[in-house]
Simulated assay, not measured.
Amino acid sequence: MNMTPHIEVNTASARAPTGEVKMKARDVSVFYGDKQALFDVSLDVPARAVTALIGPSGCGKSTFLRCINRMNDSIPGAKVSGSIEIDGEDVNDRGLDPVLLRARVGMVFQKPNPFPKSIFENVAYGPRIHGLATSQSELEGVVETSLKRAGLWAEVADRLHQPGTGLSGGQQQRLVIARAIAVHPEVILMDEPCSALDPIATARVEELIDELREEYCIVIVTHSMAQAARVSQVTAFFHLGKLVESGATDEIFTNPRDSRTQDYITGRFG
């Protein structure tokens, strides 16, 4: 009896994109004190596409994601070697201000984390501190545009000055995405953005990801292989801190080159 799970790949969007590479990682290793968490990861990430990082818990996919916007800088004892370049600029260049890097590289976490401010102020905060709006009317335009692109405007237009924390979980996650895109990032990182959401909210966020990939380079960590198959064009499989293989999502899910990828996808381990 065949117990292999069937994972539906969105073949319309799962083919590897051609053209521009937005980000290049070369020989990226991460140490937390004496423990090595990531081993010599090299990966090309395309522009205007979704790259999914999959693998069992503790395999290094979130560690790699945090390297892209230098979030590992804040962890005592963390050391990163190798290079990650965005449009040819190494994110680990000590002359690069991490605050400016994080404006270019937005982050959406597992648990929605709106600021304890109004819906309007959640979205306006970034453009205001980065000087992206010169007047109140311009700021209002940025907020409206960002909420529309996050698919949230129709639901909150009449309560912009109510707390963002009063929204449902799915709405909060879309608010956080609106907050991220308000500063015109080039890359959006998502660390299991739907794991705290119900199926309806998950479907809405997945639709949003599919829309945003037309403009942004998106990297998503997901524990759900079905989600990776639905939303990504490129999939990278991590195991024990190493990148085992990467490629077009439909190829990884239907014809993986490495037996460890096959075993993970078919549920033999994970």
Rank of each mutant, 00 (worst) to 15 (best):
G126K: 07
P127D: 01
R128K: 14
R128A: 15
R128D: 13
R128W: 08
I129V: 14
H130P: 04
H130Y: 11
G131R: 06
G131I: 13
G131K: 02
A133L: 12
A133Y: 14
T134A: 15
T134G: 11
T134D: 11
T134F: 14
S135A: 04
S135R: 11
S135I: 05
Q136A: 14
Q136M: 11
Q136T: 14
Q136H: 13
S137G: 12
E138V: 02
E138R: 07
L139P: 02
L139Y: 04
E140H: 10
G141Y: 03
G141C: 03
G141V: 01
G141A: 02
G141R: 03
V142T: 08
V142I: 11
V142C: 04
V143N: 01
E144G: 08
T145R: 13
T145I: 12
S146I: 10
S146L: 12
S146P: 15
S146Y: 05
L147D: 01
L147M: 02
L147Y: 06
L147W: 07
L147R: 02
K148N: 08
K148H: 12
K148W: 07
K148C: 09
K148T: 04
R149K: 13
G151L: 06
G151H: 02
G151A: 05
L152Q: 07
L152N: 07
L152S: 10
W153N: 12
W153V: 00
A154P: 05
E155L: 14
A157N: 12
D158I: 02
D158L: 05
D158M: 05
D158K: 14
D158Y: 05
L160N: 07
H161Y: 15
Q162C: 15
Q162I: 09
Q162A: 14
P163T: 10
G164C: 10
G164L: 13
G164W: 10
G164P: 14
G164I: 11
T165V: 14
G166Q: 12
G166S: 09
G166M: 15
G166C: 15
S168Q: 13
G169I: 03
G169D: 08
G170A: 11
G170Q: 08
Q171P: 10
Q171A: 02
Q171G: 03
Q172H: 09
Q172R: 11
Q172G: 11
Q173F: 03
Q173R: 02
L175C: 02
L175S: 00
L175N: 00
V176C: 08
V176H: 00
V176E: 06
I177V: 15
I177W: 05
A178G: 06
A178E: 06
R179A: 05
R179S: 06
A180H: 08
I181P: 01
A182C: 04
A182I: 00
H184P: 03
H184D: 11
P185Q: 15
P185A: 04
P185E: 14
V187I: 12
I188K: 04
I188C: 11
I188T: 12
L189W: 01
M190V: 02
M190F: 07
M190K: 01
E192H: 00
E192G: 02
E192K: 01
P193L: 01
P193W: 00
C194Y: 02
C194I: 03
C194H: 01
C194P: 06
C194S: 04
